[in-house]
Design a protein around this nucleic acid. Structure first.
Length: 774
DNA sequence: CAGTGAGCGAGCTTCCGCTTGACTT
């Protein structure tokens, strides 16, 4: 029987620690927090000096009782959660819930999981830091107050089941404000001049030199004027200069930078990255994946140095220490790094291997030498004017860290690929092959991706590594935002080119504004945001978290008492909640678009009971107003009168097919063709419900019929309700509008009717057995 | 695949941070 019990948060950590400790230590995990505020009745006794009502979480009851049992059988209990605010609170809750005694309970912390670090921690125990715990309680209680007082205001004033919170509401605000910037953005165009010179080098090889005019020309006239002056001009090299350039590696990964890079380089979503990282962590292949620290342990530094000199040579190695700059970082862990830096790759699924390799490269690169480059700039004189053309190129002199890790382009602006320049001489004469002036449009500010949103939140000190994934899913689940692709629009641009002293004018078409996996605010997100910003400005302020964090720090330092801080906050906050409940209007984001020329009625758009809707006429009028839902892609903020009027033209009857009406309409699942009371979806990109013709409608119907025929794998004469069909996840049984899985080891084609019926019966039985929780 | 804000009105929704399962139609 062991004499010691160590409790940590994570089972994977427990497993690792166990290896370093002798038989006398029992190592267990609490699986994170074990208690939380009661959900019913607010969980805070306002009248009793904000006394928190803690309850053991349903899914932790079993763990708590196990821990209680273990604690009884040992002499000393070591509480070893992380050394940050939340970790301290976990230790304190454990102390309270397990009814531990001060004389045989010790609080220890370690920053890396090594035998030495753990031994060192055990030799230097301390008591639970109650001030730090109080800071956490204040954080928890403030979040509950904000969330559980604000959300009901939204239910009352906008729509049921909405939510607001210190973190999520600011995340939505960022997206809404960016969207408005984009809506208001006016694109300007200017002309970019590039020249290509061709000449023969000393080996008589044809070489090209590409040069640019550093400033853009504002108008087409200026561009034409410039090209005209280039006619019969002489071009000559005026200056060649080189200067050395240095590039340094990025720090090793934190949760947020890993999420961004995995998204950019591997195309992973934020949640996918975390799921894969969790697997690697559980397998002992990487360190903990939820961290805000860029710090590497001394062991890691030594391992990195050895791995780099073994693989690439000593001159590639350079030990570096990185400092965390992020606001509010708690740094309870190391940066995310491979546990064994000598392993460049690992076994596992394809995604695991790729993510591991990314982590390995980034970690190793962070401990490598700078890359050294030489940048050459060539200035070309034009005989007919003052302006100069500039060509530049880069040569890599020493690759350094670039040997393993290419820095990914932060923003897309990589127009000129900088390569080697051909050998050139001072005063060398050049003759242009082509000089062109291309019309370029300024771009609106970029929409957020999941990763860039996380980055922004982190910069503002909002949210924690463990919450980035939940934040993103919450704001989507509430319908405030969607992540999606949107097609671009065609745009004309002018291309002027000077070839053989003649100017050619062309108009070309480019696709602009294509969006891939971007976060877009929905109408409801905008309405909720506007409401919150109007009535709860301070909480929606981007600095709100930072300023309360300062107060939490003071609580942790013992300078202020947590109940006093909370009292001050709550009094002011609660007054605002009450005032808003009483006085504010129903908020539906209504916008008037204009008057229908036919009926002379007013057209408005707003959030209706079932989502964004257009309304023709006023609700008080003698004639009841007409309503029509907005289509996907239409928004209250941007829809115009003509588009809204079109909505009232549906549903419309196109004609007859097989003696039945064909009707076009828009329903819950988007635009449809209805025929013989069956629905067929229109193609998202190609079909327009307002203009679709009979022929195309019939085509859609026939296509769907054909597809359905192909889906059928097997039918049975004896029972027409039952079919074996081919679906997205393989074959399945369809029976009276319900679908049933076919076990992987069974061949769908050879199933008999009886087999199928058995499978159905089995599923129904197992379903009945599953007890309903919650 | 329809309805579009109160003329019956129960009982519910909701926060942020720590952790991993169990569950996959």
């Amino acid at each position: 029987m062991e004499n010691n019990l160590i409790i940590v948060e994570s089972p994977a950590k427990a497993k690792t620690i166990k290896k370093f400790l002798g038989k006398d230590f029992l190592v267990k995990s609490s699986f994170g927090h074990i208690r939380d505020l009661e959900k019913k009745n607010f969980g805070i006794e306002i009248e009793n000096n904000y006394r928190p009502q803690y309850v053991i979480s349903e899914d932790k009851k079993k763990i708590v009782s196990e821990l209680r049992k273990s604690a009884k059988n040992v002499k000393i209990i070591w509480l070893a959660p992380d050394e940050d605010r939340e970790g301290e609170a976990i230790a304190w809750h454990l102390f309270e819930v397990l009814k531990l005694k001060p004389d045989n309970t010790k609080r220890i912390v370690f920053h890396e999981i090594t035998k030495n670090a753990i031994q060192n921690a055990i030799n230097n125990p301390r008591n639970i830091d109650k001030n730090l715990v109080d800071a956490q309680q204040a954080r928890r209680i403030l979040d509950r107050m904000v969330g559980f007082k604000l959300s009901p205001v939204l239910w009352e004033k906008i729509k049921p089941a909405l939510s607001a919170g210190r973190v999520q509401s600011v995340a939505v605000r960022l997206l809404v404000e960016r969207e408005r910037e984009i809506i208001a953005f006016k694109s300007k165009s200017a002309f970019k001049v590039t020249a290509i010179f061709e000449f023969l080098d000393k080996n008589n090889n044809k070489v090209e030199l590409k040069a640019e005019l550093p400033k853009k020309l504002e108008t087409k006239e200026q561009a034409l004027d410039f090209l005209n002056k280039c006619k019969n001009a002489e071009f000559e090299i005026e200056e060649i200069s080189t200067k050395p350039l240095k590039k340094s590696p990025s720090p090793p990964f934190t949760t947020s930078t890993l999420q961004q890079e995995a998204s950019r380089k591997l195309g992973f979503s934020v949640s996918q990255t975390m799921a894969v990282a969790q697997k690697l962590y559980e397998a002992g292949k990487i360190t903990y994946m939820r961290t805000d620290s860029v710090n590497l342990s001394n062991i890691a530094l030594t391992l990195a140095k050895k791995a780099i000199s073994d693989k690439y040579g000593m001159k590639y190695s350079k030990s570096r220490k990185y400092k965390t700059k992020t606001k509010g970082a708690q740094e309870a862990h190391e940066a995310i790094r491979p546990t064994y830096l000598e392993n460049k790759s690992v076994s596992g699924s394809n995604t695991e291997q790729r993510l591991y390799e990314l982590i390995w490269k980034r970690t190793i690169a962070s401990q490598m030498s700078d890359a050294l480059l030489e940048k050459t700039t060539v200035i070309i004189r034009i005989s007919t004017m003052e302006e100069k053309l500039i060509a530049s190129g880069e040569v890599l002199k020493f690759d350094g860290f670039l040997k393993v890790y290419k820095v990914s382009a932060e923003e897309e602006d990589q127009e000129t690929s900088k390569g080697l320049l051909p050998p050139l001489k001072m005063n060398q004469k050049l003759s242009p092959e082509i000089i062109s002036a291309t019309e370029k449009f300024t771009n609106y500010p970029p929409r957020y991706t999941e990763g860039s949103l996380v980055k922004k939140l982190e910069e503002l000190g909002i949210g924690r590594p463990s919450t980035y994934v939940p934040i993103i899913s919450t704001i989507q689940n509430r319908g405030y935002v969607v992540k999606e692709d949107r097609p671009g629009k065609e745009r004309e641009y002018v291309l002027l080119s000077l070839i053989n002293n003649t100017i050619k004018k062309e108009t070309r078409i480019e696709i602009a504004g294509v969006e891939k996996s971007k976060m877009f605010p929905n109408d409801i997100g905008m309405v909720v945001n506007d409401f919150l910003v109007e009535h709860f400005k301070d909480i929606l302020n981007f600095n709100f978290t930072a300023s309360v964090e300062k107060e939490f720090d003071e609580i942790a330092a013992g300078k202020i008492v947590w109940t006093e801080m909370i009292d001050k906050f709550y009094r002011a906050f609660h007054k605002k909640v009450e005032k808003t409940m009483e006085s504010s209007e129903w908020s539906k984001g209504e916008r008037e678009l204009g008057t229908d020329p036919k009926s002379k009625k007013i057209v408005t758009v707003k959030i209706g009971r079932y989502g964004p809707v257009a309304q023709l006429g006023k609700s008080g009028d003698a004639q009841k107003p007409k309503f029509a839902s907005l289509l996907k892609g239409q928004h209250i903020e941007t829809i115009i009168l003509e588009e809204a009027l079109d909505l009232f033209k549906l549903p419309r009857i196109l004609g007859k097919y097989e003696n039945k009406d064909i009707t076009i309409g828009v329903g819950r699942f988007g635009p449809y063709v209805m025929h013989n009371s069956k629905f067929y979806s229109l193609q998202k990109e190609t079909d327009d419900p307002f203009t679709i013709k009979m022929g195309r409608a019939i085509e859609i119907i026939e296509d769907k019929r054909e597809e359905d025929r192909k889906k059928v794998i097997k039918t049975f004469e004896e029972n027409h309700d039952l079919k074996i069909l081919k679906g997205r996840w393989g074959p399945y049984i369809s029976f009276k509008k319900e679908n049933f899985k076919i076990p992987k080891n069974k061949d769908a084609k050879s199933l008999s009717l009886q087999n199928c019926l058995d499978l159905i019966k089995n599923r129904q039985k197992s379903k009945a057995k599953t007890p309903k929780i919650k």
